[in-house]
Design a protein around this nucleic acid. Structure first.
Lengths: 294, 294
DNA sequence: AGAGATTTGTACGTATGTATA
DNA sequence: CTATACATACGTACAAATCTC
């Protein structure tokens, strides 16, 4: 009975007022109350702090700033909640929400009952955003899946170009073996993941591998929504992957890129046809339901 | 006096136990207490709930699940905190932390005093993670900056290949104008941003543009750390960008890719030389300080 | 423009589970 | 097994922002 009251407004997005406070703290009013780092005052006698209503965001920024000032590296312990409360002069919930934010971004890692530590800032969490982005698309999930696949193609084709002719014999053998294991329905998904993962494992740029992973994850979380992908095309999967390996081994950059492009063309085609069939069966179900039900 | 106590352990990372609960709720123990959605019981008489210590995470998952069940699209209102408290049977702080997590991921957007709404799941927040990743690198910020630049190159070179010969006359004219504006020191950064932005504006795949933006943002937050980039090379900037436009207009895919690659080669070179000079001046300062100070 | 209602933001106190030593 | 340090969760109260009338 309370829900419909606010449905009138469309979607006044707030806009991007944040990219300014990415690095620096920018906490405009640290002239709040007492609570200097020196004194060990329990955070009381406040009763009207709240600079303006962005305490959590500014607290998160200040924590990041703190980590930078103290030159804390991934794995190092972050001050405890109590210390942050004393140091920053905010309440526990504020610190907790700020930590929750940083934890979501991978900037810190929390271990229950033990402590909080600087994180590696992995991009892992991004796949969650991507998945939601796909499933919340009002025009249907298909276009979101197309975008994911297209993005993967963009990155991996480029990487194929770079990797052509640079892989060691062992690496190539491993890739061949993984491609073969894709013939087995049980191992297919894991083998596919390992294939793309070992492909970019030796890369000096760790971002590339992580980004590939993130998009791979998101895609493979979403794609099971399309039941009944083309079961027949699985030997084609093996073939495509082997061709990629071949091109990486002996071919030039263009050949590797072409092989990778064709792999993704296969994936695109399978998604499209599966979506078409899904739409058809859906329509058929609807027809039979409306025909028999009334 | 409390800080050093926990510095002994290295960094036992938790590992990736999460990609399983990306989409579905997977809240293992909803057999907690009462608090069914039907009854409007104020969440009391609990006193020992806490299934196992992951209430916030599972609450966040359940909220996402809720949004999916109700087919809520970006812009639609999310149930209020009170409703979520009643529906999910958790305390307010738990809901708030869950919302904070989803807000960080761009899955919801919160407006003080008004309500919470489904978000567009933009990748904006990623740049924050990227920035932290660079500045927290124990081996120095330079390698992180190299990675950012390399990642940008990977994506944008690939996009240049795609865009070659497809841009409209107006678009090309706009790009030319933006390139010219880079001669002005005042407008340079904004023009650069707009250049790369309008380049990928018409793309049907919105992910590409966002990803380019994210890496652009992160890079340009970090790069001012290197004071005194080569001031002399700025007409080269204009030239490089104009050459990209030319290649996109009349050249083939390879020409466009080459032009873009050369642009990034310039950027790489400038970063490296600036870093080398910064290291040199730093060493000089240290020498003079240790020589004069003692 | 003023008052009330709704909703999110912040603060404080307390109890409990968890991991380490 | 006990002790300790820490994060987790709950409940409540009040402040601030926004909307509606």
């Amino acid at each position: 009975m309370i829900t419909v009251a606010r449905a009138s407004q469309g979607r006044q997005r707030a806009g991007g007022a944040e990219p300014d406070s990415l690095l620096r703290g920018s906490h405009p009013g640290s002239v709040t109350g007492g609570s200097r780092p020196g004194r060990a005052t329990p955070p009381r006698a406040r009763s009207r702090t709240t600079p303006e209503g962005v305490a959590v965001a500014s607290t998160a920024d200040r924590i990041v700033e703190l980590l930078r000032e103290r030159r804390l590296c991934p794995g190092d312990p972050v001050p405890t909640e109590q210390e942050l409360i004393a140091e920053l002069g905010v309440a526990r919930n504020t610190v907790r929400e700020a930590i929750r934010e940083l934890r979501t971004l991978g900037i810190v890692e929390v271990r229950h009952g033990f402590g909080t530590f600087v994180g590696a800032a992995a991009l892992e969490a991004v796949s969650r955003t991507l998945v939601f982005r796909v499933i919340s698309n009002p025009s249907g999930e298909l276009i979101g899946m197309r975008e994911l696949l297209d993005m993967r193609e963009l990155i991996e084709v480029s990487m194929a170009r770079r990797l052509a002719g640079t892989l060691s014999a062992e690496r190539l053998a491993t890739l061949c073996e993984l491609a073969d294991r894709m013939a087995d329905a049980q191992q297919r998904v894991a083998a596919d993941r390992d294939f793309h993962r070992t492909l970019y494992a030796g890369q000096p740029n760790s971002l590339v591998g992580e980004l590939v992973d993130v998009f791979w994850d998101a895609y493979h979380v979403v794609v099971p929504q399309l039941r009944e992908l083309t079961e027949a095309a699985f030997d084609a999967t093996v073939r495509r992957h082997r061709r990629i390996v071949d091109a990486l081994e002996s071919g030039g950059a263009d050949a590797a890129a072409t092989a990778m492009t064709e792999h993704f063309a296969d994936l695109h085609e399978r998604v499209e046809s599966a979506a078409a069939r899904a739409a058809k069966t859906l329509a058929a179900e609807r027809d039979s339901a409306s025909g028999a039900g009334r």
